[in-house]
């Protein structure tokens, strides 16, 4: 693995130099996933090695922003601890291809970081994060009736499906649907707004763009606080 990684990293570096530019959305643009393509990829996710993932978490500099064991130390970074293997793996793939690109700043760093990762590295990282637990750092919330309705029932009039139907009753997520429990509130808000204005479009069928389309800022903030208060 070691020699191969170095060689492929250098090859990628060379390629990337030609392609990339300082402008926004300049990373290699990738095709959106079809469900079929994703299932094929999903079936071929290598078995991850948790201890290699732990080491890569440090050496690939993930830890410097995402914190010890993937628990974010700042409001900018999402926690990765406790998220699902498929979601983490797909997210890294999407950064590497440039499909996930919410503009320069944070995404640009992740696109750069993902260039040197092999499929096996991504699996190692995904297995490592899935193994960690995420304790809520926010106080428990008394769920307001309107927020509870969004979570459990959605809003038919605004074509908003209930969050819980995909992200689980306890925000635990499922396969490529991310866990939300314990997630950094500011990251949650930023992400929802990015979906809303179509800066983030890497979800299959782009459902999140629809669900967030009519959400108000107040609703997004309430959902962020609610999910931040859960643990995974």
């Amino acid at each position: 693995m070691k020699k191969t990684l170095l060689i492929s990293a250098l090859a990628l570096t060379t390629g990337f130099t030609q392609l990339a530019s300082a402008n926004e959305h300049a990373a290699p643009q990738a095709q959106a996933w079809t469900l079929q393509q994703w299932h094929q990829t999903q079936n071929n996710i290598p078995n991850g090695n948790i201890s290699k993932g732990a080491e890569l978490h440090k050496q690939a500099l993930c830890m410097t922003c995402h914190g010890e064991n993937g628990v974010a130390p700042s409001r900018n970074a999402p926690s990765l601890a406790g998220n699902n293997i498929d979601y983490t793996f797909k997210t890294l793939k999407d950064y590497q291809s440039g499909l996930r690109n919410e503009g320069h700043g944070k995404s640009a760093v992740m696109i750069a970081a993902a260039q040197s990762l092999t499929q096996q590295d991504m699996a190692d990282l995904a297995y490592f994060y899935a193994e960690q637990t995420l304790q809520s750092k926010a106080p428990a919330q008394a769920l307001s009736s309107s927020t509870e309705r969004l979570v459990r029932k959605g809003d038919v009039k605004r074509m908003i499906t209930p969050c819980a139907s995909c992200h689980g009753v306890h925000g635990e997520g499922n396969e490529i649907t991310p866990a939300l429990a314990g997630q950094t509130a500011h990251y949650f808000i930023r992400t929802m707004k990015a979906y809303k204005i179509k800066h983030r479009t890497n979800d299959i069928n782009q459902g999140m763009g629809q669900f967030t389309h009519d959400l108000t800022d107040e609703e997004i903030h309430a959902l962020a606080d609610y999910y931040a208060s859960l643990s995974k």
């Binding site: 130390p73 409001r75 900018n76 970074a77 700043g105």
Partner: peptide, 20 residues
Amino acid sequence: EFNEAMPPLAGMDKNNFIKL
């Protein structure tokens, strides 16, 4: 500065800052 990759420090928990 909240809009860039380098994390904002304003309002950061003191103990968290010191530990890091």
